[in-house]
Design a protein around this nucleic acid. Sequence first.
DNA 1: TATAATAACTTACATAAAGTAACTAAGTAA
DNA 2: TTACTTAGTTACTTTATGTAAGTTATTATA
Lengths: 107, 107
Amino acid sequence: MDQSICPRFEKAISILSQRWTGLIIYQLLSGPQRFGTIESAIGVSGRVLSDRLKDLENEGIVKREVYPETPVRIEYSLTEKGSSFAPLMKEIEKWSQTWLNSPEESK
Amino acid sequence: MDQSICPRFEKAISILSQRWTGLIIYQLLSGPQRFGTIESAIGVSGRVLSDRLKDLENEGIVKREVYPETPVRIEYSLTEKGSSFAPLMKEIEKWSQTWLNSPEESK
DNA sequence: TATAATAACTTACATAAAGTAACTAAGTAA
DNA sequence: TTACTTAGTTACTTTATGTAAGTTATTATA
């Protein structure tokens, strides 16, 4: 199959091209948040959000913290590795503002 | 569902988070290429590559040109809009080189 | 005591997206 | 007439995602 694409680059792309991961990271860039907040902010289903957060935790991008209040509060936040996506997100924002005009016409 | 994410940003993310589109754009950044070349370079199936190229053409990101040689040669290339992904790709590369170390351990 | 509320998930099931491999079309060449 | 090549498409299988109900733990309320 491939013979020339850098495996690190491919890995990075595979993270970003998995549905929802980009938005989850973007969302967490605005600070630690709970499961339900992320869910309703980006419109992902709980089933998939649960999967993604586990994946991102395994990648060392997201950190999960439990606060034993009542009811329990669990907060997800970005690690340093996760926060390092900020410039990338800025680039996406920049691209979108330069090249995407009417938000309507995109169906 | 969501109430605060910029629709342009969301659209950009939705392009990038669709499987294969990032790699297809990246691949085309090295110049115009034929269907079969892209297919084997990134390891995507023809069925999906066909879909994606149509989508990207509709988005104005990719251009399709027919050369009636024998057998016919069809070349896909990036439009200006497509080429403008270059800085974004550079950021992904940069991120991957900073944060992804051993290409093995990522299974 | 029993019922209800809340957050964070999980499970079972249905639909959509992607992979695989065989097939088609057009234009030669053997 | 058969075969070759590129660029797809089609039929079918597997995987990913969506939907909605259920689970667990803890506390409040009737």
